[in-house]
Design a protein around this nucleic acid. Sequence first.
RNA 1: GUCCCGUUCGUCUAGCCCGGUCUAGGACACCUGGUUUUCAUCCAGGCAACAGGGGUUCGAAUCCCCUACGGGAUGCCA
Length: 476
Amino acid sequence: MRGLPCAKVIFLTAANSPHFLIMSQVRVRFAPSPTGFFHIGSARTALFNWLYARHTGGTFVLRIEDTDKERNTDESLQVLLDGMRWMGMEWDEGPEVGGEYGPYFQSQRQPIYDEYLQKLKDAGRTYEKDGAIWFKLEGERYTEYDDFREKEIEKVKAAPVIIDDAVRGRVERAEELDFVIVRKDGNPVFHFVNVVDDIVMGITHVIRGEDHLSNTSKHVELFNAFGVTPPVFAHIPLILKESGPGKMSKRDKGALIEEYEQRGFLANAVRNYISLLGWNPKDEREKMDIDEIIELFDFPGINKGNSRFDEKKLAALNTEYLREMNVETFTFLARPILHTAGVVKEDADEDYIQSVLSLCQGKARSLEELPDFCRYFFLDNYEMNEKTGAKIAKKADPKELLTEIVPVIEGIEAFTVDALQAVLEAYAESKGAKVFAYFPALRYALSGQGGGPDLLPMLVVLGQARVLARLKAFIG
RNA sequence: GUCCCGUUCGUCUAGCCCGGUCUAGGACACCUGGUUUUCAUCCAGGCAACAGGGGUUCGAAUCCCCUACGGGAUGCCA
């Protein structure tokens, strides 16, 4: 099954008339090239396509542009598919799920490209030069000195192409140079295969980064040459790096989706944040579940201006998601992270982990910081923060304070928050002091830190024996 | 160089299409105060923007023009 039958589909769906659009099924695609990482910009393009498909009840196609044989390994593909799935963007057609318009790898579509190349040849729209095949623009030809290329060059006065962009409105641009569609090594170039695949796969809406806006005139020229009405284009703004000039590149911090997964960010939070980069629901909603985003997502909400990536905002959203989940889910997510960090052993007691994590869930800002945040619950060789130690020692000698307290704690029969509270308060009162005078020293001796979960519940979870042992060790 | 796109608080953005309700709203960050027995949370408050210039108009963040700045394209990369 190849090219021809699909031409009909195009004919039905690609008309610019809104009437037709309403009547026909939306088909969008995400067409990444597997490079070994999943860039946040690509992820956002994928997300917008996916959202639009879900919003309209259309079809989301995943097409792999793997024409660069060197870089396209199996692992590279897997990174991409994993990332897509992690973000919850299931595709309706594509690798591993199939579909009627396959194959979904460009490397397997050569016969289709040959067929479409022949159409162009038959129409007299190609010629060969330097071993490559060029697409011939229509229009008067002239020669001009080109400042950029620093040489005389043949140009064409082609009629401007009009793009009715769903985000940007009317954009007019004229191509002035013929361009290569098949390299001298026989491989077709991106512009050509992209258009052919969009035709053959019946794509109705092309949602992609603004970096393709200037290429669109080439693409429209090709659509026209094939006699096919182009799809609706929607060019979305780019994501710029957090600081400094230019768009996010793979080397920038926070640029890779797989990195978020490893760092324990929540997929929902990442997806929510990315959806807000260049799109908004036109009201003050920010934290939205995916059904809500799907319902609200549409072209008018997409911005024209580029946006700058801000990890702090992502982190804040992530924290919100962390806070609202139930302890079981939190534990489920936290456990592997603690295990990887060597904080929790394989045979650790499940109830103990659960009670530690229920104390930490409302306090820790991210899963990423969790190992450091709660290491002392599991290991005795926790690090003593020197700054905190010095700060506490300024007010009173912690060893003296704790020496007083140890027998008090030792005397408790039922080691509960209430008991601790009562006993400590009574003791403090007897000394004419306030109970909070003892808190920082206690926390420091037991955890080495200045902050953490509520103190008394923390003592209870650690258990009387361990608390006393640590206090005694601290006093020396 | 040429072409295309863009420009509201530090950042993400609302408002712009259909000019007056904008002494420009929200969120993140930051600062202050309150709550909390510590820490964090939470609550209250604060700081902070229509890129510049011209025009149209009784009135412009909103419409038009110019400039500046930013981004992209200009590959036999995708």
